[in-house]
Amino acid sequence: MTTEVREIEDSVGAVLARYQRDEGFLVSILQDVQTKLNYLPREALLKVSQGMEVPLSRVYSVATFFKAFSLKPRGRHLLHVCMGTACHVRGAVRVLDRIEQELGIGSGETTRDLEYTLETVNCVGACALGPVVVVDGEYAGQMTSDKVKHLLESFD
């Protein structure tokens, strides 16, 4: 077993120890695992399935159902570009285009150096500030394509 797999299994083990073996906790468990590991690696889902005695297909079904879960590694910084109506009419598409250009990835992807993950969301509830980009939970409002470079640099 590689150290990486061992680490994953230990993390999952620690999470499982806090819960009863009840399928109803599956979502909470996966949330905790993702908080620890930043995403849900395959080995983690296998371990959850074994530890909970829940079929792997069920664990996989839950893990793929919620957008909040990611089966692929995610970047250290999470960029959410709001595509809600208000942001959209104020030019969110151009902002997104520019970010995609700058990072060389599309929406839903992660840069190879695992620095950034880019995602679009439908309204973050800050329409008055639109176009909005949320970086690691912090709102950057009135975004323009020209300001994108500066925004990204401030997180390097």
């Binding site: 079929p55 297909s57 069920r58 996989y60 079904s61 793929t64 159902f65």
Partner: peptide, 10 residues
């Protein structure tokens, strides 16, 4: 009794 398959993705 195997649950080998499931419905996945939203």
């Amino acid at each position: 009794g195997q649950s080998a398959i499931s419905l996945v993705n939203p």
